[in-house]
Design a protein around this nucleic acid. Sequence first.
DNA 1: ATTATTAAACGTTTAAATTACACTATATGT
DNA 2: ACATATAGTGTAATTTAAACGTTTAATAAT
Lengths: 245, 245
Amino acid sequence: MKSKKIKNISVDCVVFGYNTIEKSLNVLLIKRYLESETTSEILVDDYVLTGYHINEDETLDDTASRALKELTGLSSLYKKQFKAFGSPDRLLNDKDQIWIKNEGFNTRTVTIAYYFLIKTEAVNLHENKYNAKWFPVNDLPELGFDHEAIILEAYEDLKIKCLSEPIIFELLPHKFTINDVQDLYQSILGIEIDNRNFRRKLIHKKYIIPLDEKQVGVSKKPAQLYMFSKDVYDKMFEKNYLISI
Amino acid sequence: MKSKKIKNISVDCVVFGYNTIEKSLNVLLIKRYLESETTSEILVDDYVLTGYHINEDETLDDTASRALKELTGLSSLYKKQFKAFGSPDRLLNDKDQIWIKNEGFNTRTVTIAYYFLIKTEAVNLHENKYNAKWFPVNDLPELGFDHEAIILEAYEDLKIKCLSEPIIFELLPHKFTINDVQDLYQSILGIEIDNRNFRRKLIHKKYIIPLDEKQVGVSKKPAQLYMFSKDVYDKMFEKNYLISI
DNA sequence: ATTATTAAACGTTTAAATTACACTATATGT
DNA sequence: ACATATAGTGTAATTTAAACGTTTAATAAT
């Protein structure tokens, strides 16, 4: 039942995770570590995205979902294929060469890059076999291959997309406060937003549903909780042109 | 000097061409034709996008540009990599199988799809070796492989992009009238736009420069000509968020 | 019980942008 | 000179965005 890997095509996954408590947008990375067998010199010690080579009988989307399932245990997450990277020299710096020789895969690999949206709390990293770790998107560690470029392009795409499609809700718990949404926008876009105007605008959207519930366990005035209704949203827009020409 | 083709990765090009006179948005397609050597039965007779397999030493962008150069003789056109298509069954319907057997390429090919923007007048199809032909984007002929799906996705992307980035000017001559721009938007989006409001909005943009020139050779009142200034545009926006949150 | 503290929630005014809508102007061809 | 077809203009009503300060509700401290 095991199908054959295609050696020169891979999928790489940029996993964005938002931490509602800490108000930080993060990327999930895995450790790449190799030391010389003879001298025990450290040859490679950095981080990379999770990626897999695609199988003969698999769609690109399936490969991406498989990678995510392996990494986080989660499925049916928001997923977006955003760009293919295939420059002939994308895997050619020194450390990458050492790593590739060790792992035995193709030097000219084209990768189809996806990003995923997720709540950091949803992933249990303690029992993670890849030493996966969250890093703030604005403070990334040293990265292997061309993965820094891939992350930055994913981030740019996310910045644009979050303004025209309701994908922010993928990064928040089902029940959220208006201020949660504002904080999230501010984290992603790196801007300050006026709370009063933002609040009004959001509350007036028909797909933002107020619940009969307030925050619990907070030490000050608990905020009203809301949810996002995809049903209502979908009914409102055939295609959501938020821009006017 | 000839470098090796990578057999399972290709680039496909959706070439959008706008005809300012006829006010039609078109796609440039090439003929796929094959008849049986023995019975002279027509085995394959339809259209496809231009595509090439990528070379070992070539970036994806370079492959796309090469394909366009071969097809149209043109270079430095607006080009956008918009999606990779890699479903295992994307080349598996009957005609495609016959064709692939004849051409001898890999059944499991992942293709990186680009779209290009161009003025139809810029291409001379008479001396075209591929039997290339323009088809209205809303009235496509029978298409091979998964190319219809690719074109439709390119078109969706174009519809969204043309509202937030100044790419329409790639489809127009350097000197254009306000009504040319309106017609183009209407062709792409398939909507009617109020001329007075559109006109005002466009004329007030600082990057729409009025010229000391009017249309010539028209049989009625000649219209004022304008040009688009990319310099002015670029100076106005670091990043052009046309949507408000 | 009263008070202090902190974040949530609310409202008004001004400016700008969008929409809807009908007539005038101008160059050409007859 | 006249007809014709397309270019080009203006105003009022509505909606949306931006900029601000004050009140309210809950817990924590006294």
